[in-house]
Design a protein around this nucleic acid. Structure first.
Length: 718
RNA sequence: GGUGAUGUAGCUCAGACGGUUAGAGCGACGGAUUCAUAACCCGUAGGUCGGCAGUUCGAUUCUGCCCAUCACCA
């Protein structure tokens, strides 16, 4: 009985570009969907832009657009990025849609009638100039703990303290610069602290779904336990779901001037997108997937792929909203971790904040990234590190060296010697492949989203195939009289193995797989039925190579294209944000993202004065025997020994490529006098001289510094 | 500060309900080969399994403490 699954990916916020961090979760989701379909299951795969909230409203205003114009533009950009990376949603909708308005109203109405909506007055900062209430992130001021200036209303980037915006000293509005005033307003709350909700969530987060598997990964379930507290303890507080006008969103039915908080209607966008798809197609019974009773009868599933930054929303608010509005709750949450690049948070100054667009524009192959991410995905919430050198090595050796190579080394014989027709396959030689087909270890690895395990096994099979070719040496058979039949069999067998490998890699590399299907002249590869070799007499196309290698210089160009110079921080907060989180989703991400940027380009004056810079006279300079780069310098900085004789410092400087020692003697330059002495192969080095060079190496050369006339040895530089 | 996760060969990662010589791929090195975008094949070297202490006949695997990294919370 095929499964019927509604799969979603987190909705990206319509306030920024898709970057490689986002793509981790989308690629994981897409691979799972493609796998399920190859197994014959029915999957509806939907997503949408998350479009509401204050940041969108203000951003549109800044760009001189209406919010609708802004989100329309971004919708196109996002969809194009996903498409280019092979993430093939059946529908990419928007939370600013009639379907979403209907669902939001319906869910809210049912919660309200169920007694789960409360109103109460709260006091908040209000911008009197802009005439709007200010979210925490739009209030700035001095940190109440350490006094650092220009800190946001929720936490301090200088000392890490967390506080309420009302605790800030000298607060001002980041929108207008005005001093905010406290103002009272009535807000609507979802009563998450209600006993029914708490009891439900306790069961839901640790229980299993209809198929008997856990709804949350173990780590995620543990995290929920932390948030929910122990039995009898109630750590949940009610959730503020309204915002006052002006606000870009949906007005709450029966509450003029009050709008749904963006996070209320964001996940509802999953249903809206699905409804929109069903209306377009006309053959999907929506309630079979969305209604509590009917979905149970129909045995459908609803699976959400999300980043761990938005677990809170998807494991608490979302199931509770659904449950108490009579909707089905999610069957499973697949939570992925953050992306780091070369072991560190993505950074604009290092160029590792890589946008999806720039990757495509720099002509890198999206399937390289899909393969690498898949190789790093093991179905847990762990962070994924994109190690660029590792990616180059892995893709080049696995995909080009091993996988593609199998076809490349055999197809030529089939074309040249046998007119493109396959011969008999040596089925015994394929025993490992037949065994892999019969076993469920590969498919269960995909099912559990442990793609790295699947790929390890697939690459082991690729090794088997290459060994087979190597052992039977078709290039020798080709030269021998009377070995045509054997040659034919060996190459045909290798191509059957190659067909199998392609099938297993297809969820990860859909585009490469379709090239192979064309080359082999086979219908779209599926993952069901009995194993059979490619039949004798079957005709294949001439081989043309399937994938190129990655070169380091392509990666360097990509980093360069994403590098932003460290200009003084006059930019708007959004513009210089560095996101560590894969799914930036509504205002919550404004938090994560801003807090993530701790790599300040500034040092304090105290840090600077730790460096003792001195004017030095080069009293001697010598080549160093056996050193490629070093020159031995004796530097006078006015120091003397006990007897009062001048005592120059010995410093080894790596400037041999640019200077002849003879020309250095007598010159003045600048040295770091308090650098810890270091024993080098050729002796002690008691400091360093400063020299300028182009970090990119575009302009060659090395230039030591020289003071203006009048400076004398020993003078302090500061 | 509290909680949790992670720390295994140069790199990326498996694994171990405690038990003889701790694994893979890549990289390095040596050999073989030349069908294949120097790809493939065979072989070698590399790890006191983050540190310290404890439990045990025996710990890298369990416990405690510490260190580092990351996340969450206040």
């Amino acid at each position: 009985m095929p499964r019927k699954i509604l799969v979603t990916n987190a909705l990206p916020y319509a306030n920024g570009d898709i970057h490689l961090g986002h793509l981790v979760g989308y690629i994981q989701g897409d691979i799972w969907v493609r796998f399920q379909r190859m197994r014959g299951n029915t999957v509806h795969y939907v997503c949408a832009d998350d479009t509401h909230g204050t940041p969108i409203m203000l951003r549109a205003e800044k760009e001189g657009l209406t919010p609708e114009q802004l989100i329309n533009r971004v919708h196109g950009e996002h969809l194009r990025d996903f498409t280019d990376f092979g993430v093939a949603f059946d529908n990419y909708h928007s939370t600013h849609s009639p379907e979403n308005r209907d669902y939001a109203g319906d869910i809210y109405g049912k919660l309200s009638r169920g007694g789960l909506i409360d109103t109460r007055s709260i006091e908040q900062y209000y911008d009197p100039v802009k005439e709007m209430f200010l979210p925490d992130r739009f209030i700035k001021g001095e940190c109440p703990k350490c006094g650092a200036a220009d800190q946001y209303g929720d936490n301090c980037e200088a000392c890490g303290a967390a506080y309420a915006p009302t605790e800030l000293k000298n607060p001002y509005s980041a929108v207008s610069g005005a001093k905010p005033v406290l103002k009272t307003s009535e807000h609507y709350f979802f009563r998450l602290s209600d006993d029914r909700a708490v009891a439900f969530l306790r069961e839901w987060t640790r229980g299993t779904n209809a198929a008997g598997s856990r709804r949350l990964q173990t780590e995620a379930a543990n995290k929920m336990k932390e948030w929910l507290g122990e039995e009898g303890e109630n750590k949940l507080s009610d959730w503020d779901i309204s915002r006052d006008a002006p606000y870009f969103g949906f007005e709450i039915p029966g509450a003029p001037g009050k709008y749904f908080y963006v996070w209320l209607d964001a996940p509802i966008g999953y249903l809206a997108s699905f409804r929109n798809l069903a209306d377009k197609r006309g053959d999907i019974a929506v309630e079979d997937y969305t209604d509590a009773v009917r979905s149970e009868a129909a045995g459908t599933e609803m699976v959400h792929f999300i980043g761990k930054d938005i677990l809170y929303f998807h494991a608490l608010f979302w199931p509770a909203m659904l449950k108490f509005a009579g909707y089905r709750t999610p069957s499973q949450l697949c939570v992925n971790g953050f992306l780091t690049v070369d072991g560190a948070k993505m950074s604009k100054s290092r160029g590792t904040f890589i946008t999806a667009r720039s990757y495509v524009e720099q002509k890198l192959n999206p399937e390289w990234l899909r393969y690498y991410f898949a190789g790093k995905s093991n179905g847990t919430m762990e962070d994924v590190d994109l190690n660029l050198d590792d990616m180059i090595a892995k893709v080049n050796s696995d995909l080009v060296g091993k996988f593609v190579n199998i076809a490349s080394r055999c197809a030529g014989f089939i074309t040249k010697r046998f007119d493109g027709q396959l011969g008999e396959t040596d089925v015994t030689a394929c025993s490992e492949f037949a065994a892999a087909w019969a076993a469920d270890s590969l498919s269960s690895a995909y099912e559990e989203r442990d793609y790295s395990r699947a790929l390890r096994e697939i690459m082991r099979l690729a090794d088997v195939a290459n060994q087979f070719v190597n052992d039977h040496k078709p290039w020798e058979l080709a030269k021998q009289e009377g070995q045509d039949a054997r040659l034919h069999q060996v190459c045909s067998t290798a191509l059957t193995m190659f067909r199998d490998l392609t099938r297993y890699l297809k969820p990860v590399l859909p585009s490469l797989a379709s090239q192979v299907e064309r080359f082999l002249g086979v219908p779209a590869l599926q993952w069901q039925g009995d194993w059979a070799p490619l039949p004798a007499g079957h005709k294949v196309e001439a081989y043309s190579h399937l994938m190129t290698r990655i070169e380091r210089k392509q990666i360097d160009a990509l980093l360069e294209a994403n590098r932003e110079s460290l200009a003084p921080s006059t930019a708007q907060p959004q513009a210089k944000a560095v996101a560590a989180s894969p799914q930036r989703h509504a205002e919550k991400q404004q938090h994560t993202v801003q807090a993530a940027e701790t790599t300040s380009p500034h040092i304090s004056i105290d840090d600077f004065t730790k460096i003792d810079l001195r004017i030095a006279r080069i009293v001697d300079a010598q080549h160093v025997e056996g050193a490629d780069k070093l020159i031995r310098l004796q530097l006078d900085i006015g120091e003397c020994d006990e007897a009062g004789n001048p005592k120059p410092r010995q410093v080894f400087a790596g400037i041999k490529s640019a200077y002849d020692p003879v020309t250095l003697v007598g010159r003045l330059t600048v040295m770091v006098a308090n650098l810890a002495p270091r024993k080098m192969k050729f002796g002690m080095s008691e400091g360093m001289v400063l020299a300028a060079s182009d970090p990119d190496g575009t302009t060659a050369g090395l230039y030591i510094l020289a003071p203006d006339d009048g400076a004398t040895p020993g003078m302090r530089v500061k």
